[in-house]
Amino acid sequence: MTRIVSIGPERLERWLAGFTERHGDTSYAVTPDQVTATADDGSRAEIEVPFGPLADLTPGGLVAHVLADRRIGLLLVRRGGYGAGVFEGGKLVDSKVGSRHVQGTTKAGGWSQQRFARRRDNQAREAFNAATEVAVRILGSAKLDVLVCGGDRKAIDTVLEDPRLKAIRPLVRPPFLGVADPRQKVLEQAGVDARAIRIELTDPPGSD
């Protein structure tokens, strides 16, 4: 059986030690993008390297990599809201969230449908413009190491097209976060999720 677990960077070293304690002597295959731990009993843990590539291709190098101090930008945009934040380690040091009303769909037809669609498009444009201004204000000059995005991919692309955000576009790294309409608590949780280490665990053969 295979499953995914997520842990905070501060827990990774202890988690690796616990994996060996539970499953026996462990060997590692390390690449710049992934670390695979295989234990004596056949259990396997595939660990995505966050904010890679990994320079020191050892398990200890992975631990040091995930614990490195980084200034992480977060940009969340959905049709109904937006948020931007800057995290130093796990601490949110600057942020702004907001929302704009965008009407949903309607079953009306004819001219009414067309007017409704135009109004909705205008509202969406205003919402994305507001999200862009917040992104420029919070992220544009924040001297980021990494930018993590979430919400609606099309909306994110629209915001990042702004020339004032050109410098941070190359900083975008996975994961792309699925989030509810951004509010302060959503933004704070997204910061935790952005830093989380994702591990794909495979149980030993015959354990089903």
Rank of each mutant, 00 (worst) to 15 (best):
T36Q: 10
Y28D: 01
L75E: 07
F19M: 09
A39N: 09
V77T: 11
L57A: 14
L62I: 13
A45L: 07
T31L: 14
W15S: 01
D33V: 08
P32C: 05
R78E: 11
A17C: 03
H65T: 04
A55I: 15
P59M: 10
L12N: 07
G52I: 02
A45G: 08
T26F: 06
I47K: 10
L76C: 07
S27T: 14
A39S: 11
L12H: 07
I72A: 02
D56C: 02
P32I: 05
L16N: 03
G52E: 01
P50Y: 13
Q34M: 13
L76V: 08
E10K: 06
D41P: 01
R44F: 01
G24D: 09
P32W: 13
G73W: 07
V30S: 03
V49F: 06
L54I: 03
V63I: 13
E21S: 13
G80L: 07
G42V: 06
P59R: 08
A55E: 10
R22T: 12
A55K: 12
R44P: 03
L12G: 06
R71H: 07
A68L: 13
L62W: 04
P50W: 12
L12A: 09
A68P: 04
I47M: 09
T31I: 14
A55G: 12
Y82E: 01
F51P: 05
V77S: 08
G73H: 09
V30W: 09
A29K: 11
E48Y: 06
T26Y: 02
W15E: 04
L62S: 01
R14P: 00
R70G: 02
R11S: 13
R14I: 10
R44C: 09
S43K: 04
V35D: 02
E46L: 14
D33Y: 15
V35S: 00
V66S: 01
V35A: 00
E13D: 14
G42F: 01
W15F: 14
L62G: 04
Y82L: 03
E13W: 03
V30N: 00
E48N: 05
L12S: 03
F19E: 02
D40W: 12
D25Y: 01
H65C: 00
V63P: 02
F19K: 09
L62N: 03
A37W: 06
A39L: 05
R44A: 12
T26M: 09
L16M: 15
L16D: 00
V66F: 04
S27G: 13
A64S: 13
V30P: 06
F19N: 07
T38G: 03
A45C: 08
L16F: 12
L62E: 03
E10T: 08
T26V: 15
G73E: 10
